[in-house]
Design a protein around this nucleic acid. Structure first.
Lengths: 168, 168
DNA sequence: CTGAACTTTCAAAATTTTTTGAAATTATTT
DNA sequence: AAATAATTTCAAAAAATTTTGAAAGTTCAG
């Protein structure tokens, strides 16, 4: 397998993985492309490498920047903008965890709290069962949130070194 | 808020959450519906509650059963099949973690391994950088896999009681 | 300022995913 | 074995998402 073939494989695999996690195939592919590029790339480079339109590149790169895992790089004397991906895999993982926590975990916790303001006859067994289910979902979500929060604040070395040892 | 309103809210919120995690809105809604139903439901009950077609209910219920978070219940003397969701939130979470690990984490690890069989001049700095990135992705994935594996084998009580304390 | 280089936007088109519903299949009862 | 009831399948339709590309906007050198 040549370097280029390997890159292509990885980009495809990353795109597929993205799809099953609610990230659009193209966004994941742009991310993978920048991740394996040894140098920052321009919009045109990305267009050419993935055979997609200018607008598409622009949107996906912007989204990746919103996720905090791709940066704009300005080269002195160059008019064009260059993009590079965060290469530190731990940082990427943490950044994604942080964003998903903010975008999805926190909203669902708020929704669960809202829903538990149900005013109803607590002696009704159906109401009781519902309240219990919601309460458990909330506990689970809050626990996950707290755990993520802690992991996010943890430094890289701790993870690579001894995360899994804690679970022995 | 009445019980029914609260249920509707939760079903909607669950559907939205599903979307951002690569689960179809309807599948998440069927799951939520069964989760808050005090009794097992038939295909027709679900059709009516969510206003969706028979085929759609059938497919999504089957998928939920594949995920191991919904069961078929047969009532003696009844011709129809009933469905109920696993109510234990911890079990649901673990089951989903287990399936996603199998369906998505393991395949990406295999893909990364494949890609690292690249035969190329290791003195080429580009090749070296690529190999390094792939190696780090693999380490991250394997670590996550191992951690998940351990959590999955952990019993419920441990999580609810002291998960987050470990991270202080 | 002006115009060229580059970036962003967004309505329409293409693609992908989901849903429908009727026909085929399977299971159960008489 | 025939009739009835329920489930499954799957091609076509609908809906949702993604992509395109050209026009509008922005930036900057001269």
């Amino acid at each position: 397998m040549t370097l280029d073939e390997a890159k292509q494989h990885l980009i495809q695999a990353w795109g597929t993985l993205g799809s099953s996690w609610g990230v659009s195939r193209t966004m994941a592919q742009v991310h993978a492309l920048l991740l394996v590029s040894p140098v920052p790339m321009t919009t045109e480079d990305i267009m050419e490498a993935l055979q997609i339109s200018r607008g598409n590149v622009n949107m996906n790169v912007r989204d990746l920047m919103d996720w905090g895992i791709v940066r704009k790089v300005l080269k002195p004397g160059e008019r064009k903008e260059f993009f590079e991906a965060e290469k530190d895999v731990w940082k990427v993982g943490m950044q994604v965890a942080k964003e998903r926590k903010k975008r999805e975990l926190e909203p669902i916790i708020r929704a669960l709290e809202q829903v538990s303001t149900i005013e109803a006859d607590i002696t009704d067994p159906d109401v009781k069962q519902f309240a219990e289910t919601v309460e458990n979902l909330k506990k689970f979500a809050v626990n996950a949130d707290r755990t993520l929060e802690t992991i996010i604040k943890t430094d890289e070395n701790w993870f690579w070194g001894s995360f899994f040892k804690l679970f022995k």
